[in-house]
């Protein structure tokens, strides 16, 4: 039990938090918990969840990607421009994926080859990618996609993709040598290099993956809202980091789980939607979400200290 709790400490705390939340929500406003409401609302968080998967891996290596929102915008605009020219939607989606992957590759290349801190690299590329998206689309919206595309992608396909990607990422992280290498890089990069782990290659592909995931999110958004614009990824980067950290991934690297991130996403999402549902004052939400993040981490480090010394 102790070992189990030690390993899944953050998940346990999150589950309790979630239970407490459900209890409060049920007491205040049980309608919120009905399948109809939850079913509608859960669609709103799929894109964030997809992006959070690779970013979790990046954060475990001790890195960060602040450009995911911008990559999402860039990929969305690529999709829109392609679709506008009459490209069939699967091809347009490929365009988006290529654009996202390229954006991620550039990050990965600079981070691993020039060895510049990812915070700096992605801060710079964030503004470059948003700018590029604004420039090539002239900041205008592009709308009206294939109805078949909308019903397929916005519906079951996205759930399927997310489930598959999450399962894949979790298994890869815990069961493969490469996955263990991710932790090794985060714990001590120099030591990882000495033990013949190809740190640069792993980093390069993780950032590429993040860009690609942002593109998947972009396509999903396009299907769900039937429109894209250069600003759709705005603020995504900080939402993702908030959820991941809440999910128990250490921002300094070396520790974290896919399950934790998904739980983090779910809690932020549920709390945000419920506050807005029940109190109907958007400004309160800012305080609640920020406060939740701080409290969760204060609690975590307070209890963490105890278990560490025990």
């Amino acid at each position: 039990m102790k070992a189990f709790l030690g390993r899944f400490r953050q998940e346990a705390v999150l589950l309790v938090l979630l239970a407490a939340f459900v209890a409060v929500a049920w007491r205040l406003d049980p309608t919120f918990l009905t399948p109809k409401v939850q079913g509608t609302l859960v669609k709103l968080v799929l894109e964030l969840a997809v992006i959070a998967l690779p970013v979790t891996l990046i954060v475990i290596t001790g890195g960060i990607d602040l450009s995911v929102g911008a990559s999402m915008s860039l990929a969305a605009v690529a999709f829109g421009l392609a679709a506008e020219r009459g490209t069939p939607w699967p091809l347009a989606a490929v365009c988006a994926l290529v654009a996202g992957a390229l954006a991620g590759m550039l990050n990965g290349w600079i981070v691993s080859r020039a060895r510049i801190h990812p915070l700096i690299v992605t801060l710079a590329t964030m503004s470059a990618y948003f700018g590029l998206a604004e420039g090539i689309s002239r900041a205008r919206p592009i709308s009206g996609f294939d109805p078949a595309f909308q019903s397929l992608v916005a519906g079951p396909l996205m759930f399927f993709v997310l489930a598959l990607a999450a399962a894949g990422a979790a298994l890869w992280l815990s069961r493969t040598v490469k996955g263990q290498a991710v932790f090794a890089i985060g714990l001590n990069e120099k030591a990882a290099r000495f033990s013949a782990i190809d740190v640069d290659k792993i980093k390069f592909w993780l950032y590429t993956l993040a860009g690609t995931a942002a593109a998947v999110a972009a396509v999903s958004y396009a299907a769900r809202r039937n429109t894209v614009k250069a600003d759709i990824g705005h603020g995504m980067e900080l939402d993702v980091v908030t959820a991941i950290v809440l999910g128990g991934t250490s921002i300094t690297g070396g520790r974290g789980t896919i399950g934790g991130s998904l739980l983090g996403i779910l809690i932020v999402h549920e709390v945000r939607q419920f506050v807005s549902w029940h109190w109907e004052r958007d400004e309160i939400n800012l305080i609640v979400i920020g406060g939740l993040l701080i409290l969760a981490l204060v609690a975590n480090s307070a209890f963490g200290k105890k278990t560490d010394s025990a």
Binding site: K2, L5, R9, A12, V13, V16, L17, A19, A20, V22, A23, V24, W26, R27, F303, K306, T307
Partner: peptide, 16 residues
């Protein structure tokens, strides 16, 4: 930590 989980659960149950 060990005390926390049951405590929170109890609190949750109370609310429910």
């Amino acid at each position: 930590m060990k005390a926390l989980v049951p405590a929170l659960l109890a609190a949750a149950l109370l609310v429910v």
